[in-house]
């Protein structure tokens, strides 16, 4: 099990009901972690329309997670 620091933004923040959490997870990758979180929080967004950031840098969904990683799932961006 890994301890992962999660930060939530936009609609994910509303759906999770929190901005931040430290979660113990067996998920080996960001993709598996998002699946786990969808079960927990009923996230509506499909991963296909999102990106993931690990330790504040964009990363591939299949990047292996490490103990203490900071993970943020990035909903479709709407700046400007």
């Amino acid at each position: 099990m890994l301890n992962i620091e999660l930060q939530y933004f936009a609609q994910l923040q509303d759906e999770a009901g929190k901005i931040h959490e430290i979660r113990k997870t067996p998920a080996p990758t960001a993709a598996a972690l998002y699946d786990e979180l969808r079960n927990a929080y009923d996230f509506a967004l499909e991963p296909a329309c999102m990106r993931v950031a690990i330790n504040s840098a964009f990363a591939p969904w299949d990047q292996p997670l490490c103990e203490g990683d900071h993970v943020a799932f990035i909903p479709p961006v709407t700046g400007g």
Binding site: I74, P75, V77, G80
Partner: peptide, 14 residues
């Protein structure tokens, strides 16, 4: 620059 900001920079409008 504006087109890329709108597509890539993690900013959200509520």
């Amino acid at each position: 620059i504006i087109d890329e900001i709108k597509q890539r920079v993690p900013i959200w409008k509520n």
